[in-house]
Amino acid sequence: MLFLLKMQNAAIQTHSLTRRFGELTAVDDVSFTVAPGQFFGFLGPNGAGKSTTIKMLTGLLEPTSGSIEILGQTFRASSLEVKRQIGVVPEGMALLGRLTAAEYLRFVGRMYGLDRETVNRRTEELLEFMQLANERKKLVTDFSHGMQKKLALAAAVIHGPKILFLDEPFEGVDAIAAGMLKAMLQGMIQRGATVFLTTHVLEIVERLCSHVAIISKGRLVANGSLEDLRAGVASTLPGEESSRKLTLEEIFLSIVGAGAEEPAQELSWLT
């Protein structure tokens, strides 16, 4: 089975992906591969280039140079067939505040070319699953942040994508809903979908992701399975420390936190 998977095209592949904003290089020569069926965590401190990368991978931003392949096809903003295969929960969630949840899901379904019957059926199922069915008459603008996240996730999966890009999907979502969403995502992985996840919550990545890449100051500084990263960091530690099972937080801090500067002075006036 594993052999067959390896024979398939990579789900996502980037080659020297670079994005500059004037003098600032937000993403610098980033290359990585995500295999089909992987739960891939993409981590980095604030301003490292995570959102810029995910925007390029989903067609929201044009790379300055480099290339992207999704499911074996070169991906550009005009690659409509590829877009049909991916689902995205972007940074701003892409919601339309003046529609109800059902109207929004039906709108998205139609935009992805689903037929009427399928759209109606999946809308109902997703509303039930996301526990939004009782909020049928409420406009999206009046939803809480967590409800909006759930709706954005429902919209991202309504067309049954093969790859799911999630930018901070659990932010503002309560523990019960988060557990439900995690189960849904794991179910998708088991059925062969690929999930590309960026989040600041390292525990979630540790629990869900099989592979992790870390970006810092626009450059990819680590990439591999969680075990590979753990072993790599452990090998740099002295004595008994190296045999301890490191948490992802420790790995992350070890890789990107080493260069963090101490505050120049204390804010003595702050109570």
Partner: peptide
């Protein structure tokens, strides 16, 4: 102008 955050959907969806 009325799209708001929904403008992202314009570029994410496979509709030209």
């Amino acid at each position: 102008g009325t799209e708001g955050y929904g403008i992202q959907l314009l570029f994410l969806s496979p509709t030209p």
